[in-house]
Write a protein that binds this DNA or RNA. Structure first.
Ligand SMILES: [Mn+2]
Ligand SMILES: [Mn+2]
Ligand SMILES: [Mn+2]
Ligand SMILES: [Mn+2]
Lengths: 221, 221
DNA sequence: TAAATAAGTTAGGTTATACTAACAAATTGA
DNA sequence: TCAATTTGTTAGTATAACCTAACTTATTTA
């Protein structure tokens, strides 16, 4: 049985590993990376690693990179599943906005009951994606695959549909709402400024300008 | 901000205080009572009391009885409200049985979000009673009043409707199901054995025998 | 009322999860 | 290549929440 904090470390490792894999020049997750992500000191991470190693959820040797074991990955996917199902519940059943649900799901993801999460899944009609377009693992840890790319990589004059966001912070999501961008919104690329990657686009027939930081965090196609 | 454990101490004190008031010869809640109820040692309770006193949630002087302050009572009612709303949600929306929901609600009651619990309340249609017939405090801490009495106190040949149960353990609730007793079931008292208070009753036209322990834990009228 | 028992407190120890400060290893780059 | 910088570890401290053992105060009862 894991504590909530242990679960958060596992989930963070899963997240950082996938980030890492997605990056071009990856080189594994270190103590400092995990500490920075979780906003704790590296020494704290070190102690936690000792415990997670004992529980055989991570592999790590002195001065080396940190890796989840198969069991650790399974555990992490279970937590992600709960997080995304709860977010979906909050949006579709309780009418929360997509920028309000993450923090509450951070708490709900730690509720221990297999029966509960399976009933929520059923109640929601077995959704495949959460309110931010992130895939929801099924109860075996399988994640639906889908081809997406960053809006920043889409070529000129193409039209594309928003599938997901890569940042679920309230600030970003509220800015997207202001821009009239939501999941399934169609965006047409009109111009790309070579200097800084700024995009001139059309949304619902209206012109808008998106910074590179914004278009990097929108997944389309 | 309270920890989950602190919340459980407050809730326990609220419960013991109401039990106490209901008893004939009450005399207040002591360290040992609380320790026994929470299944911890009295010394642990003592430490926690120090912290709860600092937070002005309880009054307690050395060797004296323990009392919730007004703020403590308000806090406790908030937790009870969450507990009972979640239980109601689990039964009415997710089709859990009434004997399965208590333990899950013990976890859910600690989720921190006023907005969430008010939305759940609305989603459920502002229920007044939980699946065990317990009253649900509103968001000001007001509890619906209702006259009830123990089935064991009902006179001979009376018919009465089950309003609530005083024990929410799985064992008791499953036994009630076996006896075909649920909330709103009509029970007719046919005979009361003076020796041990055993009741011969009729439920849905069928005869049954209820021990005093059972009839003490059923509230009717 | 004094002894026995019950109730409550204190002291000191443990574990999980944090921290700071000091140190060691690995990497970088002049 | 070796000094500087970055990265990672160790040692020692703190707090919440638990424990046991020893002690004190209050209540019961012979
Ligand atoms: Mn989220
Ligand atoms: Mn979390
Ligand atoms: Mn309950
Ligand atoms: Mn609880």
């Amino acid at each position: 049985m894991l504590t909530q904090v242990e679960e958060n470390y596992i989930k963070a490792l899963l997240h950082l590993a996938s980030q890492d894999r997605a990056m071009t020049q990856q080189e594994g997750v270190g103590t400092n990376d995990l500490a920075a992500y979780l906003q704790v000191k590296p020494s704290t991470v070190n102690e936690m690693l000792k415990r997670l190693k004992e529980k055989e959820l991570v592999n790590h040797k002195k001065y080396g990179k940190i890796n989840l074991t198969a069991a650790g990955t399974r555990t992490g996917l279970g937590i992600v599943r709960k997080h995304r199902l709860w977010e979906t519940f909050l949006c579709t059943k309780l009418e929360f906005d997509w920028d309000e649900v993450h923090d509450i799901a951070e708490q709900l993801e730690h509720i221990r009951s297999d029966k509960l999460i399976d009933k929520i899944d059923k109640f929601l009609g077995y959704p495949k994606y959460d309110p931010h377009g992130d895939p929801i693992p099924d109860n075996h840890g399988n994640i639906p695959k889908r081809d997406t790319q960053k809006l920043s990589n889409v070529g000129l004059d193409h039209s594309c549909r928003v599938l997901a966001v890569r940042d679920t912070s309230t600030a970003f999501l509220q800015y997207l709402e202001q821009l009239n961008i939501a999941i399934n919104t169609i965006i047409e690329i009109k111009e790309k400024i070579p200097y800084d990657g700024t995009l001139r686009v059309e949304i619902d027939g209206k012109a808008a300008v998106l910074s590179n930081k914004v278009s990097e965090n929108i997944l389309v196609e």
